[in-house]
């Protein structure tokens, strides 16, 4: 019991249950929650890959070719695939949760949840299109 907890002084003998280490398997939301927390590992790994890519680019064509060859190895293809799935899971679950944190009122009425979540998706698509345009032109 942590020191912050207070219970009635001189109380009769109460029984405290222990929390199982498998608590997160007890229901579906707990599993989703733990998965969502786990996505941070993959988001971090993908960020590292991106940094590595940048470094290869700066070092010149040879280093870049080496980097690309590395990326074709099944290990990195797999890592990128799994990473993409986790990042999608991360993005979609967080987008769907944004209306909880943001209460926007327009003309005294609360803007419905789907609008707020929807705006995130719209921004996502627009930014992706912008990136695609830059890449395809260059």
């Amino acid at each position: 019991m942590s020191p912050g907890t207070q219970y009635t002084p001189y109380h009769p003998k109460w029984y405290r249950r222990r929390m199982s280490v498998w608590w997160w398997l007890q229901n579906r939301s707990y599993v989703y929650f733990v998965l969502r927390e786990l996505t941070s590992v993959f988001v971090g790994l993908c960020a590292l890959l991106l940094l590595w890519h940048l470094r290869a680019l700066v070092q010149g064509p040879e280093a870049h070719a080496h980097f690309l060859a590395q990326m074709r190895r099944p290990f990195f293809v797999g890592l990128n695939g799994v990473g993409l799935l986790f990042i999608l899971f991360h993005t979609i679950t967080w987008f769907n949760l944004t209306p909880k944190a943001m209460v926007v009122r327009l003309g005294g009425k609360r803007v419905p949840d789907w609008t707020i979540a929807g705006l995130n998706y719209v921004a996502w698509v627009l930014l992706s299109v912008a990136v695609a345009v830059v890449l395809l032109r260059g």
Binding site: Q6, Y7, T8, H11, W14, R16, R17
Partner: peptide, 19 residues
């Protein structure tokens, strides 16, 4: 109820919440 100490049978102590 989970996470609260049990006083007897189905009765738990909620003093912690009151504080």
């Amino acid at each position: 109820l989970n996470y609260f100490p049990i006083i007897r049978d189905l009765v738990v102590d909620m003093t912690d919440f009151m504080h």
